[in-house]
């Protein structure tokens, strides 16, 4: 046995070998899945549908409404609620985070509330959201907001704390007022951290949305898979899971791309959880 991991930068980043292995492994998995379901019939299709069935179901859901909407309708409903919740969390959370770092008095007053609320997991808010808003868009958006808000606050605060005091003093000596200081010195330095917070907020929000939709609602991807469960349709659940996972990846990739465009001066990312 050789210790391979010492050579990992040399062997895994440049060569095509990992790609070949990875593709091979996924291919084997797909073949095993096909063999055990449609070819050899080891597994009951009610338990695990074949890949072909899942693809067929996917096509079917795109054209025909299931539980009230087509796949596009469910995706649209989920994205809308998610955008509402995350949007509110960013609009409120980033300023709060900046104020937390900028004004220690403000932080001292509001931090106790923030700490208590942030340690209650977003899903624990689902029952009270249902009580307040019923099975409405507001319920889902509130749960998304709760999941996304702490990451916005914490990362904005962290970003502002990273600002070099010398820069602030230099700007003050050069005659910058509070407003100019915030706009021209603090925000550009803090922007990468704020963006990291945004990314975490967005993925936390997406996760929480799925949970909220599973419990309550009449449309959305989480609702789609819970309806799949109620109708004993594993293939519908599979389509829902695949849609949720791939939308998450697409959103995160878009954000990563936009970060390099919007913040070309950013330093290597320091990640921080919500």
């Amino acid at each position: 046995m050789r210790i391979n991991f010492l050579n990992r930068t040399r062997s895994s980043d440049s060569s095509r070998l990992p790609l070949i292995y990875g593709a091979g492994s996924l291919l084997v998995l797909l073949i095993l899945w096909t063999l055990s379901t449609s070819v050899l019939g080891w597994i009951d299709p009610m338990t695990l549908p074949s890949p072909a069935e899942v693809v067929a179901r996917f096509g079917n859901l795109i054209v025909e409404p299931f539980s009230g909407s087509t796949l596009a309708g469910h995706v649209g409903a989920s994205l809308y609620r998610w955008a509402l919740g995350v949007g509110a969390a960013v609009l409120l959370g980033v300023p709060v985070g900046i104020l937390f770092a900028w004004l220690p008095g403000f932080r001292a007053v509001f931090n106790p509330i923030f700490e208590v609320l942030r340690y209650i997991p977003p899903f624990a808010w689902v029952p009270i959201a249902i009580l307040w808003f019923g099975a409405s868009t507001a319920t889902q958006a509130m749960v998304v907001f709760i999941a996304a808000f702490p990451a916005c606050v914490i990362n904005a605060q962290l970003g502002v704390q990273q600002v070099d005091p010398i820069l602030v003093r230099a700007a003050r000596v050069l005659g910058a007022g509070q407003g100019a200081m915030l706009r021209r010195v603090v925000v550009p330095v803090a922007a990468p951290a704020i963006f990291t917070g945004l990314r975490i907020a967005i993925s936390n929000g997406w996760m929480a949305l799925v949970g909220a939709e599973l419990v309550v609602g009449k449309v959305g991807l989480g609702f789609l898979i819970s309806q799949g469960q109620n109708n004993d349709s594993v293939s519908t659940i599979f389509v829902g899971i695949i849609a949720i996972g791939s939308l998450g990846v697409i959103i995160d990739t878009l954000l990563q791309r936009s970060e390099t465009v919007l913040l070309p001066w950013r330093k290597p990312r320091a990640q921080r959880d919500g």
Partner: peptide, 19 residues
């Protein structure tokens, strides 16, 4: 193993509940 992992990772754990 990692590619299989990368495939499962973006799916929120909750989405497995109905299954």
């Amino acid at each position: 193993v990692f590619p299989i992992f990368q495939l499962i990772r973006p799916v929120p754990p909750l989405a497995w509940i109905p299954l």
